[in-house]
């Protein structure tokens, strides 16, 4: 008897192992992401809320519980609203022209070009340059007196622009750096989306006698709408946390004498690691920015959903 049960016992053990394998291994496979995300993503964000409720000094560490005092402090400063204004201004100046330029570039790329890959790679070159490096190059181009742009302007008897002294001009300069780096990248995304538009639609439009421009406005652009939304959403999350370019826009890195180009993340850094060394206040800024971004994300989601249900040509997405 025992001799006959032995093999079945091992096979049942193997079966158990196999079952465990099938049951548990998938979780093991996906666990690295979750473990890491909880440790360095979720936990720090939640803990930020805890820090923001305390007096918390870079060097001394945790101090007294102060309730919402840090939020009160931060919301009572001009700097916070300036940072908010600058962040959104830079974001708008970088996302709107960028999307338009990217669609335009995609449109001219969307043809049976010779050396296709060359052109596509060409527009992508700026993407591989680090924002810090981009910013250092443009800081020289946009220097007020010794910069390239202003000297060209003055050479043409035009007035020089206060790239650093004027808030809007500084936002424009910083947005230019962002646009430089990302326009080509987004153009490729739009290009892919354009190529996925069924050509029959175009053919139908041609048969109807629609001209090139009209085809672009009435066929191409509407068909790209989901992609435009995708690009805008993804750039919101990063764009509102912008730090590298404005930080490097001048040598001091504090965002100008009037903090005219200080962004939210720069303010966070200044509070936490600058002379105030207040992790509590910095956390309050982080948490406020976090809520703003999440809020905009939800808004985006709702708008997208409405557009999606409102019909219109669906994306070629499964």
């Amino acid at each position: 008897m025992t001799t006959t049960t032995r093999p079945s016992r091992t096979s049942s053990r193997r079966a158990v192992l196999a079952r465990l394998d099938v049951r548990l291994t998938p979780y093991v496979f996906i666990s690295p992401f979750f473990v890491l995300f909880f440790l360095v993503g979720l936990f720090p964000i939640l803990y930020t809320a805890w820090v923001s409720l305390h007096e918390w000094d870079l060097i001394r560490g945790q101090g007294e519980f102060v309730g919402l005092a840090n939020f009160q402090f931060v919301l009572g400063t001009d700097s916070f609203y300036k940072a908010l204004r600058n962040t959104f201004s830079i974001f708008l100046l970088s996302s709107v022209p960028q999307v338009i330029a990217a669609i335009f570039i995609a449109y001219i790329l969307d043809a049976n070009l010779r050396a296709k890959t060359f052109w596509r790679m060409g527009v992508l070159v700026p993407f591989i340059v680090a924002p810090v490096a981009v910013s250092m190059i443009f800081a020289k181009i946009f220097a007020d007196q010794s910069g390239l742009v202003n000297n060209l302007l003055m050479g043409m008897d035009l007035p020089a622009i206060g790239w650093h002294s004027d808030a809007l001009a500084s936002h424009f300069a910083i947005a230019t750096m962002v646009n430089f780096r990302w326009t080509g990248y987004n153009a490729l995304i739009f290009l892919a989306a354009m190529q996925a538009i069924p050509r029959e639609i175009y053919e139908a439009a041609i048969i109807d006698g629609t001209g090139r421009m009209r085809r672009f406005w009435h066929v191409t652009v509407p068909m790209l709408r989901p992609t435009i939304i995708f690009v805008v959403i993804t750039s919101t999350i990063g764009g509102l946390q912008i730090f590298d370019e404005p930080r490097m826009f001048d040598t001091a890195g504090s965002g100008g004498a009037s903090r005219q180009w200080m962004t939210m993340t720069m303010y966070l850094y200044e509070l936490g690691w600058g002379p105030q060394v207040s992790f509590g206040r910095a956390s309050a800024v982080a948490w406020l920015l976090f809520m703003i971004i999440i809020g905009i994300g939800i808004l985006n989601y709702l708008i997208t959903k409405r557009i999606a249900t409102a019909g219109g040509p669906a994306k070629t997405e499964r």
Binding site: V40, P44, I293
Partner: peptide
Amino acid sequence: ATMAVPVQLGVIPLFII
């Protein structure tokens, strides 16, 4: 969904850790 979470904003606790 986590792709939409601005994890950069957790720098302070991350620094503490």
